[in-house]
């Protein structure tokens, strides 16, 4: 019986080339992951690099107003902004020392459900489980003064 898989020969010995290829693949994957880790550091918030005092780590808005004014303004005008549901409630702390896990995209189950469990359940019943609320209900752009759900994607029927 001939086993072609991974180049195993008929005698059961494994040839030289498959090992080299395999090793090469492993090195490539490790190199790729290392590159990713260096290029996209764990703490994406610049805060952790620039400020020495951790005292005001939760005052995200003050810094983001300058660093990412669009995001800050979107939040300010959103329902969460009007109700003062501040950044750390969903995103945690940039140094990961908070009680909420630090996440750029907050987890639906641990974060959103704290307040929106009834509506998530309703949506689950209607459309099945979705891991992302954000794709239809933009977190920072659900304005209270203007029309809700201004992001075009939300107008699309699911």
């Amino acid at each position: 019986m001939k086993l072609g898989f991974l180049g195993a020969t008929e005698g059961g010995r494994i040839g030289k080339w498959p090992i080299i290829i395999l090793a090469g693949m492993v090195i490539a994957v490790v190199a790729f992951l290392t590159y990713i880790n260096v290029a996209f550091p764990r703490v994406k918030c610049e805060y952790a690099k620039h400020l020495k005092s951790p005292d005001t780590a939760s005052d995200c808005y003050a810094c983001h107003l300058k660093a990412t004014p669009k995001v800050a303004q979107d939040w300010y005008e959103s329902k969460h902004g009007v109700m003062l549901v501040k950044c750390f409630v969903c995103h945690g702390q940039p140094d990961g020392k908070g009680s909420v896990p630090y996440a750029v995209n907050p987890d639906v189950n641990t974060t959103c459900r704290k307040c929106h469990d009834p509506s998530i359940k309703k949506m689950e019943k209607k459309y099945g489980l979705k891991l992302e609320c954000n794709s239809c209900h933009p977190f920072h752009q659900n304005s209270i003064h203007h029309k809700a759900y201004v992001k075009p994607v939300a107008k699309r029927k699911i």
Partner: peptide
Amino acid sequence: AIGGPLAFAASKDQT
């Protein structure tokens, strides 16, 4: 996708 960092946060199990 990003080599680990997010996996840590997401696996902090709260069931």
